[in-house]
Nucleic acid binder design. Structure first.
Lengths: 236, 236
DNA sequence: GTATAACACGAACACTTGTTCGCTGTCAAT
DNA sequence: ATTGACAGCGAACAAGTGTTCGTGTTATAC
């Protein structure tokens, strides 16, 4: 449809109407439009509004005061404000959720004898205040059931994990070779973080520090409690 | 202020007005309100609108048609959609900025001989894609000028930092006793991460692993490049 | 040059809309 | 029992607002 462009007056009318609606929360009257765009006669304003309606820039309800409505074509604002705000807020919330994970802090690991807390141990209400915030980019797994533990004592040093460090865990009760896991050694009654390998009928637990020697244990002695995904150290 | 609750009629007036505004893009007239909530007399509607204005639920412009405006207190939608969306977006963006810091990834540390990159070395445009996202809670400093380095090789193991770990650095060229810093040893042409102590006329560099022995160097040999704030390890 | 359409205008009118007035009824406090 | 506050009502009125009418000017098509 090859349509005539808007006259300058018609553009002024649209701009004024849009701004008036935003400032006042209601459309302007015919006389208010005329005063704003320099038209002395209500019938000229009426004529131009009729033309704008023909061209699809606004709707008019006849015989009611302030019976104008700008259409989408006029670039007017969305009518359903609450929905627009909610949609924007939801989109931003989704964007944040795409960026970070809040991992609940469940307690400590390290002082012997002390088994690791497990998923099933947890019944206290999750407290968001104690969460550790981590970038999703740094985790390559689904974020189900992650938890954080703070290391107490020097027993994890062979795992290159220091007193005070935080480890991000994923519940897991079996391990593949090479995975860094938290294991509870029943004979020692202690927990440790090592890379796990099955070798013949024994289990090799390899320290993260490659200069240290591994330990070999009977599979019966090992209780895997979870996989280590990240270590976070604050040095201050 | 102990204020009387709204009457049922007043609640109906607010609800009708809100819905009419959304449906029609303009406020209702006194007579439209009366018809909707079962009031035959314009003066009763007028009286109740006056009460709602007193209580802060709406504003009235006198002597104009459709001169009502619901206020925030009425739970009405924001009038300026763009502004409301922008305000909401800004508030959420501020909330995210309160929660996390995006630390630029500047390069590697560890392969010898290789001095640390410094603030002054950096001239390429900061690429947000390479940033490391860290929770502000885990940093106790102003976030000015932080940068991240990825560790290459085993040379940091005495610092309890493994190949592939990420360290979050703050530029700093002098150190207080006990701070974990990145230092460049001029004689070795190598960089290391250690706790820094001045002892007499020498400098003691203490490994993070307390079972290892420190090294003593001449102060002239030491070039401090930055303070280590955090270590992040991905174990997968 | 003429006819037609588009655009413009002031004035009057019709209708819509908000305000005011005088009155009534109910309820709580004195 | 009286009074005052509150809520309600119909009617009249004043003001606001949109529509219609008759006329004039300018641009376009033939």
């Amino acid at each position: 449809m090859n349509e005539k462009p808007l006259s300058k007056r018609q553009q002024s009318i649209l701009q004024f109407t849009h701004g008036y609606m935003e400032d006042h929360g209601r459309p302007p009257t015919i006389r208010e439009i005329g005063k704003a765009v320099g038209i002395n006669s209500t019938s000229v304003v009426n004529y131009n509004l009729g033309k704008l309606e023909e061209k699809g820039y606004l709707d008019r309800d006849p015989d009611v005061s302030r019976g104008l409505r700008l259409t989408e074509k006029a670039g007017n604002v969305a009518q359903n404000v609450g929905q627009a705000v909610g949609t924007a807020a939801g989109a931003l919330r989704e964007a944040v959720e795409q960026l970070i994970i809040r991992v609940p802090m469940w307690g400590d690991i390290g002082a012997s004898p002390s088994p690791l807390p497990t998923v099933n141990d947890r019944f206290a209400a999750y407290d968001d205040e104690d969460a550790v915030v981590v970038s999703r980019d740094m985790l390559k797994v689904k974020s189900d059931n992650l938890y954080a533990l703070r290391v107490r004592g020097d027993s994890m040093i062979d795992a290159m994990v220091n007193d005070g460090d935080i480890v991000i865990m994923q519940p897991q009760y079996e391990a593949r070779n090479g995975e860094m896991v938290a294991v509870y050694l029943r004979n020692d009654m202690s927990a440790t973080l090592k890379r796990f390998y099955v070798e013949g009928d024994r289990v090799r637990l390899q320290p993260a520090n490659p200069t240290l020697t591994p330990i070999y244990v009977d599979p019966e002695e090992v209780q895997i409690q979870g996989k280590v995904l990240m270590v976070l150290r604050q040095t201050e």
